[in-house]
Design a protein around this nucleic acid. Structure first.
Lengths: 209, 209, 209, 209
DNA sequence: TATGAATGAGTCTTCATTCAT
DNA sequence: GATGAATGAAGACTCATTCAT
């Protein structure tokens, strides 16, 4: 492999390794993944991995750090920017299938769950700084919707969980069963239905019945 | 440890090992779990494990087999036996928190997800024979509710997924974050809300709006 | 290799490993010695070493501990028990060649010197608890000889060093050049001469000239 | 580091590397010393080392070669040039502390001992060409003293060893324990005493008693 | 010439599995 | 049947050496 002398080339190689690492950690879990396989997947040799990361664990942690942020911010945006609940849910229904099918988030989730007990601190941090933040953003949005009279008063924090559950679980489903063709779900239809049901359930009239 | 001569004593020891195995596989994953630790947890010696199971993998497979069936049948019962949707959802809302907090199912799920790529066949079988069966039972129940005019026609298969998503995800949450006191969820309230929202969303009147 | 089930058999095997370890550490130094070679020398397998010692370093430290004490006490005895300087030196002249040729002390010394900077604490402890003790015993003996009027007053601490120097250095010589036949020294003659010269140098008459 | 084009600049860099190599080999031994650390100590990069030396082993051998000669010749001079035994021993008593404290010889000795079995040929050569030469020079000097009637007839070859033993051993002591402040020896006093005792022991009158 | 990225052979250590006791 | 000592395959990590820049 040609040598990476410039900082840019090194950054690129670092990303290459992180990508290879996600593949291996996703497929085998932290413990069973082999550094040599990660290296090979990046067309590098074992030793080279250690030029970029101090240890297998450091590589894992860098991977979590690297992947955690971007997707999560997108989700937060939707909650922050949407003018109405209907609008927010519509955007979510459009965005979720894309994220599930094309982003690394489902695979990252699978890795985090599988190795949650090996890295308890990481997992706790991840929950607090990423998951709770998203839940919080959605809860705040629902609170505003209540204030606006768009939806009746309720435990918005739990409602937020119910809104996100099918999205997260579909991500997990994709990560775990994605390889089985017969396990495919029509995600667009699923989230359209989810949105429909939620709008009915949350609309003020719906409450009366 | 005294010898287990009778069949009963042997079965008991087998169960002891399976229980210890779940603990270790749950906490470390298949690859990182050590046979010696499993043995120790069962107050047995390393060698004894091999009197009951051919290999670490055989122990893992036996564990999945052993744990998979009971809980799932309970869920199936609810779907089969409930006279009305309201009744079914109410029962689910009562049953789910108990299952999440006291059964082994959440821990089994965590193990299955974490090692899903190490045992792809097991995972596929599990999905087909357990998960799809539950989804199928709930879908059939919903189909009957449509026929009865209790709910409007819809893609019941997707509705079934939406109904189960918060339950399954709460199980995962418990398995992954259960050790963190500050991650606790009021499951009773969550599922009561879930049931409420679903009834509103699925009621025929709700559909008109 | 047959299994060591009893405590005695395990102790024996431990000693076997320590002996093999001395051979390897002596011939290669701590860093270059290979655990597998030590195991092989003891007719055991690599993994077995780790049943008896936690790590290569633990094996090294156990070796030092194990070998340090016995020889040193013998030397101390001579200094403590001899009735006169002549007697003490005579005994030393007889004992030294035996110790140099048959004990492990020269090889231990070579190992300690070679790895002194890898284990600075061990080496400092060894000096304080073993070497300084011997020097102290000999110094005390010389002090008593001064009191008795057997030798003139002098810096007995330095005299002790001068008495021991040829013995220690001959041990080193044996450890380093022992394999070369043409490097052999007539140790008996050397120490007889050493004794003679010392007696002349230290006798009260000798002082007058 | 700027390029060394001239022969002088290259020699200087070579010396810089040899000096850095002694530091590292002294502190870690051949096997544990790292080329990169040697390079860093010389403010050069790893690759540059290989412009000056073919391999780690070649660097080690060059170091031995480079350091061995100078000190040894000085010692030889003393033996060759002194007019009387008293004079020779006096000069030795003055020279030895300086050599021990300021020259590289003690550190070289430590390195040679520590890695003696890794480079048996080097060590044998060193003994034959350096050590035996010094011993030979001192023996020859003593033989001349016998001829002159300055000292009585004796096994001068062994006497030479006894004369040098405290010097060599003090060198070793310095190399091994030099870092411990509480291990310091008053070398001047030690060698003055050594000289005194030797003169008494070797004087013709002393022999009569 | 000088650099340091890349390589892969080598070594410690772990642990599933076997089997003598 | 139960034990735990023994084994050796496997994997993380290091570092001498090479070589593209």
């Amino acid at each position: 492999m040609r040598r990476a002398r410039s900082e840019d080339a090194k950054d690129e190689r670092r990303q290459l390794l992180l990508s290879a690492a996600l593949d291996e950690f996703f497929e085998r879990g932290f413990s069973a993944a082999r550094i040599e396989d990660i290296a090979q997947r990046a067309s590098l040799s074992k030793g080279t991995v250690y030029l970029y990361f101090d240890s297998k664990e450091a590589l894992f942690l860098a991977l979590i750090e690297d992947l955690a942020t971007p997707n999560i911010e997108q989700i937060e945006q939707i909650a922050a920017a949407a003018p109405s609940l209907r609008e927010a849910l519509d955007r979510l229904a459009v965005f979720a299938p894309v994220m599930i099918r094309t982003s690394n988030l489902p695979r990252l989730m699978k890795v985090l769950i599988g190795d949650s007990h090996t890295f308890p601190d990481i997992i706790r941090d991840y929950r607090k700084q990423k998951i709770e933040r998203i839940l919080g953003a959605l809860t705040a949005f629902l609170d505003r919707a209540v204030d606006r009279g768009e939806i009746p008063p309720q435990n918005t924090s739990l409602t937020a969980r119910l809104i996100l559950a099918p999205i997260v679980l579909s991500g997990m489903w994709q990560a775990v069963f994605g390889r089985d063709a017969d396990a495919e779900i029509d995600l667009e239809a699923l989230f359209r239905l989810h949105t429909d049901l939620l709008l009915k359930a949350l609309s003020p009239e719906g409450t009366k019945s």
